[in-house]
C-alpha cells in the first residue's frame, strides 16, 4: 500500500457531501416533527376526543383484562405454529402434485388445481363457518372440536396460497438444472427432491414468510368459531365493561407478536436480494 495524500479537490468534495448529509437529516427531523404535531393536534383536538380516550384508551380497563387476553394470545401462538407448519406441508404437497405429468396423475393434478383455484378465492370467514358449524352439523361420529375444525379451515385456506408460492418457486428453477440432474441418472422424484425443491424453497422464502405474517393475524379469526383466543377474550371484556380498550390491548399484542416475524422476513428478503445481485 502506498500512502496517499488526499487532494484539496477531494477534501472539498468530502466537505460538500457531509454538508448535504447534515442538511438531509435536519430536514427529515423537521418534517417528522411537523407531521407529528399536526396529527396530535388533529386527534386530540377533535370534539369527541375525550369520549374516545375514555372508551378506547382506558388504562384501568387495559390492566384488568390483560391477563385474560394474554392467555388467549397463547392460544393464537400455538395455533400459528401448528397452522403454519401444516399449511406449508400442504402447500408444498399440492405444488408438487401440480407438477406431475402423465395421464395417470390427471385426477390428482385436476384436484390440486381445483383446490388452489377455489380456496384462494373463498373468503376465510366463510371457510371457518363452513368447517366449524357445517361439519359438526353432519352429526358424524368422532367429529373433532371446533378449535381443530377452525384450525383446519385456516390450514386449508393458507395451504392454497402457499401452494401457489411454492409452485412459482418450482417453476423459477431453470430447466437446465433438471436436465443436469436427469443426465446424471437421477429419477424425476430424485431430481425434484435434491435439485429443484431446495432451490425453489430458498427462492420463495421471503413470500412464504410474508404469508406467515398474514396468517399470524388471521389466526385471530378463529374467535368467530368460539374458542377463546386473544380477540375473543378482548370481546368478552368489551361486552362486560362497555369499553373498547381490550380490543386495543389485543391489537397492540398482535403487532408485538408480528414484529419478530416481520424482522426475520425483512432480513431474509434483504439477503436474497443481495445474493441475487451478487449474480452468477
Amino acid at each position: 500500500m502506498t500512502t496517499h495524500q488526499i487532494s484539496t479537490r477531494q477534501r472539498e468534495r468530502i466537505a460538500y457531501r457531509r454538508g448535504r448529509a447534515i442538511r438531509s437529516v435536519l430536514l427529515a427531523a423537521a418534517s417528522t416533527a411537523a407531521v407529528g404535531t399536526l396529527l396530535a393536534v388533529a386527534i386530540t383536538g377533535a370534539p369527541g376526543w375525550e369520549r374516545v380516550k375514555e372508551s378506547f384508551f382506558d388504562l384501568d380497563t387495559a390492566r384488568k383484562y390483560l391477563p385474560q387476553i394474554l392467555e388467549g394470545l397463547w392460544l393464537n401462538v400455538k395455533l400459528l405454529v401448528v397452522c403454519a407448519t401444516c399449511a406449508m406441508a400442504l402447500g408444498l404437497l399440492v405444488a408438487v402434485l401440480r407438477t406431475l405429468r402423465g395421464p395417470v396423475f390427471f385426477p390428482v393434478r385436476a384436484l390440486a388445481t381445483g383446490y388452489t383455484y377455489s380456496f384462494r378465492g373463498l373468503p376465510l370467514i366463510i371457510v371457518i363457518y363452513l368447517f366449524a358449524f357445517g361439519v359438526p352439523g353432519l352429526r358424524l361420529q368422532g367429529t373433532p372440536d371446533v378449535l381443530v375444525l377452525g384450525a383446519a379451515a385456516l390450514v386449508v385456506t393458507y395451504g392454497a396460497y402457499l401452494a401457489e408460492v411454492f409452485r412459482a418457486g418450482i417453476e423459477s428453477v431453470h430447466p437446465s438444472q433438471i436436465a443436469a440432474a436427469r443426465s446424471l441418472g437421477l429419477t424425476y422424484r430424485q431430481a425434484m427432491r435434491h435439485v429443484v425443491l431446495p432451490q425453489a424453497v430458498r427462492r420463495v422464502a421471503p413470500p412464504l414468510l410474508n404469508d406467515t405474517v398474514a396468517l399470524q393475524k388471521d389466526v385471530g379469526l378463529i374467535s368467530l368459531a368460539g374458542p377463546i383466543d386473544a380477540i375473543r377474550a378482548a370481546q368478552i371484556g368489551v361486552a362486560q365493561d362497555a369499553d373498547f380498550t381490550p380490543y386495543i390491548v389485543a391489537g397492540v399484542l398482535f403487532v408485538l407478536l408480528a414484529l419478530p416475524l416481520i424482522a426475520v422476513t425483512d432480513g431474509v428478503t434483504l439477503r436474497a436480494a443481495r445474493r441475487q445481485n451478487a449474480g452468477t
Binding site: S176, A179, A180, S183, G185, L186, P198
Partner: peptide, 26 residues
Amino acid sequence: GLVFQSYNLFPHMTVLENITLAPVRV
C-alpha cells in the same frame, strides 16, 4: 455422462456435494 455448455452445477450444493450426488443417490 453429459457436460453442458453452461456447466449447470447445482448452485445450492458445494462442489463436493455436486459430485457425490449421483454416486450416492443413483
